[in-house]
Amino acid sequence: MKDDSNITLYEQSIEDGEPIELYAFTQNDISYLYTSNFEDVSITIPTTAGVRTETYFADYIERAEITPNTSGSSATNMEITVWKDHPVAKLFQGAPPEKTVVVKIYRLHAANVDKYDVVFYGKISQANFEESKCTLTAKLENWLEKELPNGTYRYSCSNSIFDQNCQLRKEDWQVKIFVDKVSELTIYSAQFTNFEDGYFVGGRFYYDNQVRMIESHKGEVITIRYPFLRNPYNDAIVTPGCSHLFSICAKRFKNTDNFTGFPYIKPTDSEKNPVGKGIYWVDSQVVNRDSKGFVGTIKL
Results as ranks from 00 to 15, higher is better:
34 Y>W: 08
124 I>G: 05
250 A>I: 04
235 D>M: 14
158 S>T: 11
68 P>T: 02
33 L>G: 09
233 Y>C: 12
281 W>R: 09
250 A>L: 04
185 L>T: 04
190 A>E: 15
6 N>H: 15
113 V>N: 04
167 Q>N: 12
83 W>A: 15
31 S>P: 06
285 Q>V: 10
234 N>M: 14
96 P>N: 07
172 D>E: 10
131 E>C: 14
11 E>Y: 12
145 E>C: 05
12 Q>M: 11
73 S>H: 03
132 S>I: 14
60 Y>W: 03
15 E>V: 03
192 F>P: 09
43 I>W: 03
286 V>C: 09
276 G>R: 00
252 R>Y: 01
228 F>L: 08
202 G>F: 00
295 V>W: 10
300 L>R: 13
255 N>C: 04
249 C>W: 02
255 N>M: 03
108 L>A: 00
247 S>P: 02
145 E>H: 08
241 G>M: 00
242 C>W: 01
163 D>Q: 10
266 K>N: 12
236 A>M: 05
245 L>N: 03
105 I>R: 00
169 R>D: 10
150 N>D: 14
289 R>E: 06
58 A>R: 05
268 T>M: 05
148 L>I: 06
41 V>K: 04
149 P>Y: 00
42 S>P: 00
234 N>P: 09
27 Q>N: 10
84 K>E: 14
31 S>H: 12
140 L>A: 06
225 R>E: 09
263 P>V: 07
225 R>G: 09
45 I>V: 04
229 L>V: 15
216 S>I: 01
169 R>L: 13
189 S>G: 03
29 D>K: 15
266 K>I: 10
235 D>L: 15
105 I>G: 00
118 V>F: 06
234 N>T: 13
143 W>V: 08
160 S>V: 12
126 Q>V: 04
13 S>T: 09
195 F>H: 12
